[in-house]
Design a protein around this nucleic acid. Structure first.
Lengths: 208, 208
DNA sequence: GTCTATAAGCCGATAGAC
DNA sequence: GTCTATCGGCTTATAGAC
């Protein structure tokens, strides 16, 4: 029964996410990760071999959710529905994977030195696909002519900011922690800016 | 004549901005800053006393521009004009102070441990003022009912992303460096999302 | 004011007992 | 598999010659 192994790995991963998110890779001490996990430091090395390895696992844990967030773009749908679903999912990631999101953001900010070329390529391919999809909508007259790159950058930035800059959000709103209603309001605000800003009309109601 | 002093301090500050922006505070070595500045390491300590002190000066250098960006909110004006000017200035900061912007972003992401309480208070007061201003516009019927906090967060995020996540921008657009036209396009895209998204009509043309 | 050469301490990583 | 006790390298910071 290796459930102790599973449990400890999970404890360390969670503690590492929190520490890396709070202080960044270089400023995080493995002894702090161990302390937060409630385990002695050598266990961290026993399970993960090195600090960098542990960091890469945290990073890896957020890539799949990020790629899956683009699912709405991968099947046919009206721009209003696709973008609404995409924005809601991105906000949900900021809420549910706040620490890993922040670690990912910090990684990107510093030029993604720990992200594998495969992962970079995957993320890029998905981005290119989403951009092409938006361009098609424009060509079909479903939305106003707007640069798809900049539109996507704005959506990424606006949704990720709730994880990345949570300190700023807390300070300005005066709430230590956003609740579900706040995240909903954030999503609806961004959806409004995007749909109205791109002059996207609602799809015709299904006749069924 | 202390112009050597001024010149060296300037060289070190610039090198430090670049190094801190690239790698973050903890991962940056003072020897690398010295090397980039083309000076021996002890000069860094001679002029700035400590690595942390140098970092705080870099951080400080971006606060004034950030506060000044809100100038349009501090005088009466039509929402369309104020927001347009604000967004253009924020984008200009991302372009002209790219390194310091990134250092600031990284600092905020990790809970602003090096930012003085005075600076935090100033930035907060300005944010509160801007939010109140937007709320007034809503009450006056000049724009749609939208949560001013979330609107401001989206504007901050969308404009700062060009400095903070330049690696991502470069990777997705395939351009190593954005040119003036790209920054203009970015600003106009964000302006469009905000003005149309908030249903802000243009001010009546001046009768003169 | 400038720089070489060095001290002091911290932290990632591990040897080896249990 | 687990943890105590320790090493070794790296980096901040400075002493002291020029």
């Amino acid at each position: 029964m290796s459930s102790i192994r599973e449990r400890n790995k999970e404890l360390i991963l969670r503690a590492a996410s929190e520490e890396f998110a709070e202080k960044g890779f270089a400023a995080t001490k493995t002894s702090d990760i161990a302390a937060r996990a409630g385990l002695p430091k050598p266990n961290v090395y026993y399970y993960f071999k090195s600090k960098e390895n542990l960091y890469r696992e945290v990073l890896e844990s957020i890539v799949e959710p990020l790629l899956e967030a683009s699912a709405p773009f991968n099947q046919p749908g009206h721009p209003a529905d696709v973008l609404r679903a995409y924005i809601r999912t991105k906000i949900r990631i900021s809420r549910d994977h706040a620490c890993a999101s922040k670690v990912f953001a910090s990684e990107i900010m510093h030029g993604a030195p720990h992200l594998s070329p495969e992962r970079t390529a995957q993320l890029n391919a998905q981005a290119a696909h989403n951009i092409a999809c938006i361009q098609r909508w424009i060509d079909q007259g479903l939305m106003t002519r707007i640069d798809p790159h900049h539109l996507l950058f704005s959506i990424w930035a606006a949704t990720q900011t709730y994880a990345d800059f949570d300190w700023q959000i807390s300070t300005v709103t005066g709430k230590a922690q956003l609740d579900d209603a706040d995240y909903d309001a954030a999503a609806e605000t961004i959806i409004r800016l995007v749909l109205k800003g791109c002059e996207i009309t609602e799809p015709a109601a299904p006749s069924a």
